[in-house]
Computed example of a mutant assay.
Amino acid sequence: MALKFGVSLPNGHHPAELVRFAVELEQAGWDGFFLWDHVQLDPGRREPTYDPWVQLGAIGAHTERLRLGTLVTPVPRRRPWKLAKEVVTLDHLTGGRAVLGVGLGVPPATEYGAFGEPVEPKLHAARLDEALPVLDRLLRGEPVDHRGEHYQVSAELLPGSVQRPRPPIWVAAMLPARAGVRRAARWDGIVPQSRDTGPLTPEALAALVAELPQRSLSLSKGKPDDHDEPRFDVVTPLADHAPADELADAGATWGIDGPRHREETFAETRARLLAGPPR
Rank of each mutant, 00 (worst) to 15 (best):
T63N: 06
G44W: 12
R195Y: 08
H241W: 09
P48K: 00
V134G: 04
T63W: 13
L217I: 02
D37W: 05
E47S: 04
A179R: 14
H14C: 05
R137I: 06
A131N: 13
A184D: 02
A184Y: 05
R147V: 06
P278S: 15
R272Y: 03
K223C: 10
R65S: 05
A28K: 05
P118L: 10
T63E: 11
A126L: 04
T253F: 13
A275C: 08
L68E: 04
P199S: 11
R178D: 13
E264Y: 02
D196L: 15
V54Y: 09
A114T: 12
E117R: 13
A206S: 14
V75S: 04
H261A: 15
F34M: 08
R215Y: 14
L68H: 01
D225E: 15
L100H: 01
F5I: 07
P121Y: 09
A206F: 11
V144L: 07
L3Q: 12
L217F: 10
R279G: 05
H241A: 15
A172P: 05
L205P: 10
K82V: 10
V7G: 11
E246G: 12
A172C: 10
W170G: 00
R65A: 08
P121S: 09
T197R: 05
H227E: 14
E264P: 00
L18C: 03
D91E: 03
L25V: 00
D145K: 09
E64W: 11
A244M: 10
G69P: 04
L157I: 11
V39W: 15
V234R: 01
R20W: 07
L41K: 11
R20A: 12
E264V: 01
P224K: 05
L83D: 14
A275T: 07
V75A: 04
L18W: 03
P118K: 00
V153A: 07
P230E: 09
R262F: 10
T265M: 08
E130F: 11
G44V: 06
V99H: 07
A248Y: 09
R262H: 11
F33Q: 03
Q152E: 14
R67S: 13
W254M: 01
V209Y: 12
L238K: 05
L212W: 13
S161Q: 05
P277I: 05
Q163K: 00
L139E: 05
A155W: 06
G255Q: 14
V54I: 15
H146N: 06
L274N: 12
W30S: 01
G96C: 02
L56F: 02
V171H: 00
D249R: 14
G116W: 02
F21E: 07
R77Y: 07
T265C: 04
D91L: 00
V88D: 04
L238I: 01
R79I: 08
L35F: 12
R270Y: 07
G251W: 11
G189L: 04
G148A: 04
A61V: 08
R147K: 12
D249K: 14
L138M: 15
A126R: 10
P278M: 13
P230H: 00
F5Y: 13
Q40W: 09
F21D: 05
F232L: 04
A114Y: 13
E111D: 11
A204S: 01
A126F: 00
E47W: 06
L128N: 11
D233F: 01
I59E: 01
T89L: 15
L56R: 03
Q214K: 03
L104D: 02
E64A: 14
A155V: 06
R195N: 08
W187T: 02
I59P: 13
V153N: 12
S220G: 04
